[in-house]
Simulated assay, not measured.
Amino acid sequence: MEWLAEARAWVDEQLAAAGVERTGELTQPRVRAWGTVLRADTTRGPVWLKAPGPETAFEVPLYRLLATVVPSWVLDPIGVDAARGWVLLPDGGPTLRELVGEQGLSEALVTVLPQYAELQVGLMPHAEDLLAAGVVDMRPAVMPQRLDQALEATGRYVASSRDAEARELHAWVESRREEFAARCRELPDRVSLDHNDLHSNNILGAPPGPVRFYDWGDSVLAHPFSSMLVTLASLAGHLAVGPEHPLVRRPRDAYLEVFGDPVELLAELELACWIGKVARTLVWERALHSDPGEFARAPLETLGSLRMNSWLSPA
């Protein structure tokens, strides 16, 4: 109750500074292992206080950086308190999935993914700023070390689960360390922000109107194409189609066109997504650090999907 009272007072301070008045009670619609969200109605519509957990508190200063460098593609914070780990955001409206439905996702993403690519291009000169904000380094050169960290983290689950299948999967990944390092060296050194959970419920708005990319708590500094790991797997899953289906290929190629010839870049995208599974494993691990619950097996399943030489995998 003391924390909520403090949060309420801070929200009111930030709203007053912005010339806005709260008109409803502060409610807590979401509590997760990785953070909580509070909501309140105001004279300018709903606002949301996001309070990430310690493992993802970097999202708070990151919002300030994004609003400065790529303001067209993100929500503009009403208030930021990096010391407390709080960011107050305006309501971004319905998500892409809510607005177009599953059957409209592919066509919408043909327009939206190039916009996300432009955001990544805008952030490419700001790698050091992203690291200073607390974004974790998952660039190709450090990924062999990140694989070791992922194996250590998933090894704790394997040791406690007494699951023979989990032990075998973990051992298989361990045996591929050298192969993984070699493939990391093959990946061109493009670097930007990887949202790491970019699906249609983390995109606000829909074409032909403006869109905003939301929920940056899983993001890492990585090869930009690794973002498509979650995006394309989620799209294929919702549409129940394979990775080469035109409904998946068209938005994929529209994204790649921002960087060059999609035909020439496809192998790079597939490699970036394959390597990005290790980053996704560690993102799962940090989000679940304090309370794994029903997702306890998710990091190992994601790491074990390296067996699939494709982005189409658990993500």
Rank of each mutant, 00 (worst) to 15 (best):
G237S: 13
L26M: 14
S290H: 12
V11T: 13
Y255F: 15
L282P: 02
A171I: 02
N201D: 15
S175V: 10
E301Q: 14
F259M: 06
K277T: 06
D261R: 10
A206I: 09
P77S: 11
D291T: 01
A117Q: 03
E257L: 10
L119F: 09
R250A: 15
D163S: 11
R176G: 09
L15S: 11
D291P: 00
L239H: 04
L65Y: 05
L131I: 04
L49C: 08
C273D: 07
Q14E: 15
P188K: 01
S313T: 15
T95A: 11
R22V: 07
S310N: 10
L198F: 07
P144D: 05
S200V: 08
A133R: 14
S219L: 03
P251V: 02
L187E: 07
A240S: 12
D91P: 01
H289S: 13
L303T: 09
S226E: 10
N202F: 03
A222R: 06
E168S: 13
W216E: 03
D215Y: 02
M143Q: 15
P251E: 05
L89S: 04
Q28V: 11
G79W: 11
H289D: 03
H195P: 06
L147H: 03
G24C: 02
A267W: 06
V278G: 07
T36G: 05
P52D: 05
R190L: 14
W284I: 01
P90R: 03
V283E: 01
L109R: 13
A233E: 03
T281Q: 00
G122V: 04
F259L: 05
N196S: 14
P246N: 10
D41C: 03
S226K: 12
L147P: 02
E178Q: 14
R280M: 12
V258D: 02
T302K: 05
V121D: 04
H245M: 09
G45Q: 12
S226R: 15
M138H: 15
E118A: 14
E21G: 05
V278F: 03
L221D: 09
W284Y: 14
L247A: 15
F295G: 02
H289Q: 13
A127M: 09
G53M: 08
G155Q: 11
T154W: 05
P71H: 06
Y63W: 13
A296C: 04
L131N: 01
P246E: 15
R30P: 00
E107P: 03
V263S: 10
S161T: 04
E165L: 14
R8Q: 12
P29M: 05
V173A: 04
K50H: 01
V278H: 04
A141T: 10
P246F: 09
L151Q: 12
L187H: 06
P29F: 08
F213A: 07
A296D: 03
M124V: 09
H289C: 07
L266K: 08
R185S: 15
W311Y: 12
L312F: 13
A240D: 14
Q149F: 02
A51V: 14
L282Y: 08
E165Q: 15
R177F: 15
G134K: 03
H223P: 11
M1Y: 09
V248C: 08
H238Y: 08
N202Y: 02
R250S: 13
H238F: 09
W73K: 00
E168G: 07
V74I: 07
L123D: 01
D76Y: 00
R249I: 09
A16K: 14
T36L: 13
A67C: 13
A18E: 15
D91E: 11
A108P: 05
R183G: 01
V20M: 13
